[in-house]
Computed example of a mutant assay.
Amino acid sequence: MIIDWDAQPEVLERLKLQARIDTDEDDELLKGYVDAALAHVEQHCDRKLVVPVPGVDLSPDQMELSSDVWQAVVLLVAHWYATREAVVTGTIATTVPLGFERLLWYRKRF
Rank of each mutant, 00 (worst) to 15 (best):
A82W: 03
L29H: 07
D61M: 12
D57N: 13
L103D: 07
L103M: 11
P54H: 04
E64I: 07
L38R: 02
D22H: 12
R107I: 04
R109K: 15
Q62Y: 03
P9R: 08
E64F: 07
Y33M: 13
A86S: 12
A19L: 09
S67H: 11
G90F: 09
D68A: 13
V74P: 00
A78C: 01
V56K: 08
R109T: 06
K48W: 02
E42A: 03
D22G: 13
T83I: 10
L65R: 01
V69A: 11
R20P: 00
L104S: 08
L15D: 01
L15A: 08
C45N: 06
Y81H: 14
L76R: 14
P97M: 06
D24M: 01
A7C: 05
T94R: 13
A19W: 00
P9N: 05
E64A: 10
H44T: 15
D35M: 04
I2F: 10
V96S: 12
R84K: 11
P9M: 11
F100S: 02
I2A: 10
R109H: 13
W5L: 04
Q18W: 09
E28S: 12
L29I: 12
A72E: 05
R47E: 07
E25R: 08
R14P: 05
I2M: 03
G32V: 04
L15H: 03
H44K: 13
A82N: 12
I3G: 01
L103I: 05
Q71I: 08
K31D: 10
H79T: 15
P54A: 03
V53Q: 06
T95R: 15
P60G: 02
D68R: 14
D22V: 15
Q43T: 09
V69N: 02
Y81N: 08
E28I: 03
V69S: 01
D26W: 01
E85H: 15
V96I: 14
R84P: 10
T23H: 11
L98Q: 15
I3T: 07
V88K: 09
G99F: 11
Y106D: 11
D68S: 13
D4N: 11
V77K: 02
S66N: 14
C45A: 00
A37M: 00
P60Q: 01
D68N: 13
C45K: 14
A86C: 05
L98W: 10
T23G: 03
D4I: 10
R84F: 07
L76D: 14
L15G: 00
L38G: 00
D35Q: 11
P9K: 09
Q8M: 09
E10Y: 09
R20N: 15
M1G: 00
A82H: 14
A7L: 08
S59Y: 02
